[in-house]
């Protein structure tokens, strides 16, 4: 044991006498430096959570209480606002529309995006670069710019106020980002794995399903979450392309309700807003890491 004892043999031989001279504490090493880190972090937390907290607080109050009881913690918390939101037919239909359109867009995006991204990542073919450019460049097109042209297209196609049209539009909106992210992920999968599968006698389709896709589950999750979020939160295009409760989604419904109720019913509005956010938060809490890293990997490249 002695080799790892406290004292190596050399330590005993030459232990220097320690001259005691001045010993001072660096000011910056202490509380000041710690404050320089923790103060911004505290500010970040307040900045992020502040609006949520106020909104939650208001949503648990009765309309009359909002002005009478401005404190953060309600004197008489009530679920009344939430009940009234859920009882609204507009909310229910918008929720259903959001679910249908959200899942529709995410499924269609993956169904169309995965083969395309795989082709771009692994195949050599004539026109690949041009097609890639064509598929990716639209990421730079702002959605506000598409409101009118798509509105006119919808009217022409008699597809105005249709959920299917919204799903198709959102898929078109999402594909560039999805293809971009997926190409990156697919290219990161070592080619040797596919070559090994090929040597082992797997067909191309089997290889995709048994080798490539299982390895890209984090990527698919990231893309799915991004797609769902985008469809769930989209406002501008819904504003332009829908008219009735048959197809309008939550953000538009929220906007209409807010314009209709004005300043009279803050609890109702905030409860509505929070209910639209809640499903995303629940999903997000489970896969926060994928979202953060997926966004980054997409952004930094």
């Amino acid at each position: 044991m002695a080799v790892t004892q406290d004292h190596g043999p050399a330590a005993a031989a030459a232990r220097p006498a320690m001259p005691r001279t001045r010993r001072r504490r660096s000011l910056l090493g202490g509380p000041l430096r710690r404050a320089a880190i923790w103060l911004p972090l505290a500010a970040l937390v307040v900045w992020t959570l502040g609006p949520f907290l106020i909104s939650v607080s208001v949503s648990f109050k009765a309309p009359a209480q909002v002005f009478a009881d401005p404190g953060l913690i309600p004197d008489e918390p009530t679920l009344d606002a939430y009940k009234r939101v859920i009882d609204r037919p507009g909310f229910r239909s918008a929720l259903w529309n959001s679910v249908v359109i959200g899942f529709g867009s995410l499924i269609l995006t993956l169904l169309i995006g995965v083969p395309a991204a795989y082709a771009f990542a692994r195949f050599r073919f004539r026109g690949r670069h041009l097609m890639l450019l064509f598929a990716l460049l639209p990421m730079l097109v702002p959605k506000v710019g598409l409101m009118f042209p798509l509105f006119l297209v919808a009217v022409e196609l008699k597809a105005f106020d249709s959920r299917l049209f919204l799903i198709l539009v959102f898929t078109g909106m999402l594909l560039p980002l999805a293809v971009w992210l997926l190409i990156g992920f697919f290219q990161a999968i070592p080619r040797e794995l596919e070559e090994a599968a090929a040597v082992d006698g797997a067909s191309q389709l089997r290889m995709l399903f048994h080798v490539v896709l299982p390895l890209s589950i984090p990527a698919l999750l990231t893309v799915a979450v991004l797609a769902f979020r985008e469809a769930w939160n989209e406002f501008e295009l819904v504003l332009a392309l829908t008219q009735t409760s048959a197809s309008r989604t939550l953000p538009y419904e929220l906007y209409l309700m807010q314009s209709a109720t004005g300043i009279a019913d803050y609890p109702l509005q905030n409860a509505f807003a929070l209910l639209t956010i809640l499903p995303l938060i629940l999903v997000y809490l489970r896969i926060e890491r994928y979202v953060a890293e997926g966004l980054l990997s997409g952004a930094v490249k």
Partner: peptide
């Protein structure tokens, strides 16, 4: 290459119809 064209065609069509065309149309 044919497989590549077939698998990327739907994406190209959707992007063309819902993104590229509206911009040019505008």
């Amino acid at each position: 290459p044919l497989i590549a064209y077939i698998s990327s065609a739907p994406a190209m069509i959707i992007v063309a119809v819902f993104l590229a065309f509206p911009v040019l149309y505008a």
